[in-house]
């Protein structure tokens, strides 16, 4: 298999069987980068561990199964893409990892802590310090300057203003927005906004970045740039990146791709 093959070509080669294509990519990665794959498994430092997670909703008396007995380990420093079509349960999975949602059954361990029994306040603290969220629509405060927007999570963490300044500058430089500190969100492009949002996710030096369709609102060029930023940040800050996407091209950039369908891992 040539490296230059596009995802489209790959898909065609597998008779449009996405799952088969993804497995092929994973197999390829195992062959091409054995050192990286082994590092994650060998260190055995589980950053996120989901054990038999199920999530059911009650929708007007009908039980909707969003997640069906999902077990998954994500290792420190890993870059994981969760893919699947709309309604496959990938976003729900991400929210459960981020402590925004609770599973109906199963145990969620984040950074070696069982968060299933966490109170609201403990969950908030965990989200604040251990996790950085990146959203599809960036969700920056339109009336706060970029620097302040990035500072927001550190406000809840009560990090000193001087330390925040240092971190903001560092992060802005890292994402190539060093001169945009005093700009308002409306003065920036979509790609720039998402880079700022990534900076915001990293302000409290989290261990995990959870990104929900981070490129979903961007063109392919900007999407590519964002993925590069994620890769750069992973190296720079040694964070675990979990990315939810339905874009196979983007997913293919991850160390591991976890395809989902009907609330189950494939």
């Amino acid at each position: 298999m040539s490296k230059t093959k596009t995802v489209q070509e790959l898909l065609e080669a597998f008779g449009n069987d996405k799952i088969a294509a993804i497995r092929a990519i994973q197999a390829y990665k195992l062959v091409e980068h054995p050192e990286r794959v082994s590092t994650f498994t060998q260190t055995n430092e589980k950053m996120i561990s989901l054990n038999s997670i199920s999530k059911t909703y009650d929708l007007k008396g009908n039980q909707i199964v969003a997640l069906d007995n999902v077990s998954l380990d994500i290792y420190a420093g890993e870059f994981v893409a969760i893919t699947g079509s709309s309604g496959s349960g990938k976003s729900t999975l991400l929210q459960i990892m981020g402590g925004l949602d609770k599973p109906t059954t199963g145990v969620v361990t984040i950074n070696n802590q069982d968060i299933s029994k966490f109170s609201d306040s403990q969950l908030a603290e965990m989200r604040n310090k251990t996790i950085g969220f990146v959203f599809q629509f960036f969700y920056l405060q339109p009336f706060l300057k970029l620097g302040k927007n990035i500072e927001v999570p550190s406000m809840f963490a009560r990090i000193s203003p001087s330390e925040r300044q240092v971190r903001v500058q560092e992060l802005l430089s890292a994402v190539g927005l060093e001169h945009r500190n005093d700009h308002y969100p409306r003065q920036l492009s979509g790609g720039q906004l998402q880079r700022a949002a990534i900076s915001r996710a990293l302000i409290n030096r989290p261990k995990i970045i959870l990104a929900d369709e981070p490129t979903g609102n961007l063109d392919s060029k900007n999407g590519e740039a964002i993925i590069e930023i994620f890769e750069k940040m992973r190296k720079l800050y040694n964070v675990t990146v979990v990315l939810v996407t339905h874009d196979d091209e983007i997913a293919s950039r991850a160390d591991r791709i976890i395809p989902m369908k009907d609330g189950m891992l494939l």
């Binding site: 981020g98 925004l100 609201d120 306040s121 908030a124 603290e125 965990m126 989200r127 604040n128 310090k129 996790i131 969220f133 959203f135 969700y139 405060q141 927001v152 999570p153 809840f156 963490a157 915001r200 409290n204």
Partner: peptide
């Protein structure tokens, strides 16, 4: 509401 939700996702507690 959305902003509040985002703040909470970013780690704000209810009292924040």
């Amino acid at each position: 509401r959305r902003e509040t939700a985002v703040f909470r996702a970013l780690g704000a507690k209810r009292r924040d």
